[in-house]
């Protein structure tokens, strides 16, 4: 049954092409996305150091910046100011800021300051 071989071959080719597309899509997304993990509280005494790290990361380009707040227990107005300024500069160039793994306390603070209306906010699970 030669037709079976042809159809099987076509199916394999389609699977390979689709997988390739998915890998390319993933690579493209990764190239456009940067992840910043402060790993410490984002407060007045730490913000200058964190700002430098953030600027270095953003020099590499990318449209989406993910700020992963894993391990961050406290953020103050200076830390919020850093995130808002980063969001504003990304927004100007068509980019966006996403905050992930925020504790409930930090999420509540962001909501009280209405920051969830400006950038995407995801709580830690």
């Amino acid at each position: 049954m030669p037709w079976l071989h042809v159809e099987l071959g076509q199916a394999i080719i389609i699977i390979i092409v689709r997988k390739g597309d998915r890998l390319m899509e993933k690579a493209k997304k990764e190239a456009e996305q940067r992840v910043f993990r402060p790993g410490e509280d984002i407060v007045a005494p730490t913000v200058d150091g964190l700002r430098k790290k953030l600027l270095n990361l953003m020099e590499g380009g990318g449209k989406e910046l993910v700020v992963d707040l894993t391990g961050v227990q406290m953020i103050d107005s200076v830390g919020i100011g850093l995130l808002v300024a980063t969001h504003n500069s990304l927004h100007k160039t068509g980019g966006r800021l996403v905050v992930t793994n925020a504790s409930k306390d930090i999420c509540d603070l962001f909501k009280a300051m209405r920051l969830d209306q400006h950038f995407e906010l995801r709580m830690s699970e």
Partner: peptide, 12 residues
């Protein structure tokens, strides 16, 4: 102003 980089101390 929620899109401003500073001035949130009293609001917090």
């Amino acid at each position: 102003l929620s899109n401003s980089g500073s001035g949130r101390g009293l609001s917090i």
